[in-house]
Design a protein around this nucleic acid. Structure first.
Lengths: 234, 234
DNA sequence: TGACGTGGTGTACATCGTACGCCTACCGTC
DNA sequence: GACGGTAGGCGTACGATGTACACCACGTCA
């Protein structure tokens, strides 16, 4: 589209590029975010993007940064207990990340050295340090939380809900349910508890796991755990 | 390379294809596993692979299955305590998965509906059920373990060790350490404890997290936890 | 006036997954 | 033996992708 004289299109910017990428991923999925389609959506030629983004990795990092930027900073009330503040921060991250279904996969594959990512980790770290956790314990506790700081636990039995399982033909053998009585048992139990639902109750699983872990953390904190002892029991 | 008359090469098979793919990933990394390069490594034309593997996804699944197949089945001594058996199984998975650096990423991106994957999950499930865990608790506990059942925790601060950080030019701003005093503090603390090491002690972090989680699980089990109460405290 | 930097364009290339059709070697059956 | 079927490897071809490189239009400032 040749732009006529005087018809200046508002110029690109890193911000605009990233926002467009996020929008594209939101509506068409992460795989739809190719440099060409993104450029199309901005009415621009693919190579134009490289003036604002160093490469596709950088683009992905930027998209993740935008999402993370929406995570609310936990209420700064110094009187708050660490546990409530941590819980609130993580659940805040969860609602934001869940609002962008592609974000989970994007975060999992990033190298996580960007200011936005580090900023979120820093805030969590400070919650622990501020509550009197040793640097050592804080460190291990962050690892213990792992990706849960982003508000998601690893998928496990999950299919993406609603997708009707396109029955791909695989060369390998299909699994036979009879071979997995234990899994079938717990699946049946879960169905019995939530007859209308499909798949697992991710929200409950997340809360459950988070609480178990926070309980464990609280116990370590109370017991003045120290890594030189290299044992966890309290 | 035209094969002369009578010079019959040993034929391909799904097994041979998958093993070659694993070998290729082991030596050159997961990204090197393209249909073409894999075909090359087998002295065969790319499309030949599709007679043994339905598509690349299937190939990846098969590779993961091969790795998982190496996970030792925990000693069947029925007298074993569940905790020891679970721990042994998971650590067994860990050594196997760590032997193939690409496996972590491969597992994370699979949909996990293959017999090998389900088999490992079934064995773990049985350990809990066999120890008297309710189906309900077993279910949640599997979610709680998450990817840890494969022997890895999510990376967090990690760079791949040894890689000297190629200093990629990014369009975004580089993070400034001053902005992250908490992270810097725990990093300094970790360095002080292990002056020679680079990065985190993944093995320790894994053990640490696993034990906290197993402690939590044990407590729930003892307290006859039931999801209808929807609370974790004991 | 002219040099220069900023930002969008156009072309080109290597690489990827894989659809489709062919050709050959082997098999069981008559 | 002749013959039809099938399994397995080959060759070609297509559309997508990320991005290197050269180019050029513009505004700014000396």
């Amino acid at each position: 589209m040749p732009r006529g004289p005087g018809v200046t299109r508002e110029p690109l910017s890193r911000e605009r590029v990233l926002r467009a990428a996020v929008a594209l991923a939101d509506t068409e999925g992460l795989d739809a975010v190719s440099m060409r389609r993104l450029a199309d959506s901005l009415g621009v030629v693919p190579m134009a993007l490289y003036k604002h983004v160093s490469d596709k990795d950088d683009l992905l990092d930027g998209m993740v940064a935008i999402v993370i930027g929406d995570i609310p900073v936990a209420g700064a009330g110094a009187s708050r207990r660490w546990r409530a503040a941590v819980r609130e921060t993580i659940l805040g991250a969860r609602t934001v990340v869940l609002a962008h279904p592609w974000a989970r996969r994007a975060i999992e594959t990033r190298t996580l050295r960007t200011p936005a990512v580090l900023g979120h980790m820093e805030r969590l770290t400070q919650l622990f340090l501020g509550a009197g956790f040793s640097a050592d314990l804080t460190h291990h506790v962050m690892h213990l939380l792992g990706n849960r700081i982003w508000g998601f636990s690893p998928e496990l039995f999950n299919e993406t809900p609603g997708k009707p399982e396109p029955v791909k033909r695989r060369t390998s053998g299909e699994p036979d349910p009879q071979d997995y009585p234990g899994i079938m048992l717990i699946a049946a139990d879960a169905r019995a508890r939530r007859p209308d639902a499909t798949g697992c109750d991710e929200d409950f699983e997340f809360d459950f796991a988070l609480d178990v872990i926070l309980d464990g953390i609280a116990r370590l904190h109370r017991s003045k755990w120290d890594s030189t002892t290299r044992t966890v029991r309290d």
